[in-house]
Amino acid sequence: MELAITLFLFCAIVATAIAITTIRSLFAVVMLSGVISLLSALLFVLMDAVDVAFTEAAVGAGISTVLMLGTIALTSRTQKDIKRNNLIPLAVIILTGLVLIDGTLDMPSFGAPDSPAQTHVGAAYIARTADEIHIPNIVTAVLASYRGYDTLGEVTVVFTAGLGVVLLLGGMGARSRKRRQEEEG
């Protein structure tokens, strides 16, 4: 039953993604990408990743939709109808897809408890957290303690990306806006 729901959600996500390729209204595209985020949050809950689902629901469906709508307001609302040759990209993705599928044939089947991913470091974190860290949420323990150095790097990336946006869009605010108004007269 659980597997059936998982597969159903997965198919719904794929269908939404395929709809995005053909729709030309950017507003609809942004809304559908929000739909993909919410559906994948559901999928993450089914696959036991509650923390990830939480983040995806807050970030993917919340902030990213707001930012994309803001971009539409600053640029344009529809994708222009420009004739392009779609055959080459189609051939490329079909070829790449077939190679990837060939690679998955040797993967362990979904949810197998003895797959390589479950038997090494992941199992060690589960076994050690209760004694060493004394907090119930293993994800937090790994995030902030066992792999704290990793997370420091991630926070720095977020910091740098934020800095980049502020520099690109002149988020220094009133000062740059005043200057622009003076230039225009």
Binding site: M47, A49, V121, Y125, I126, A161
Partner: peptide, 20 residues
């Protein structure tokens, strides 16, 4: 329990993803 390690990697990747 399911493996917590991929959860940690992806949790941070989502937030980095929105920033980029």
């Amino acid at each position: 329990y399911s493996n917590p390690l991929p959860h940690v990697l992806i949790l941070t990747a989502i937030v980095v993803g929105i920033a980029t």
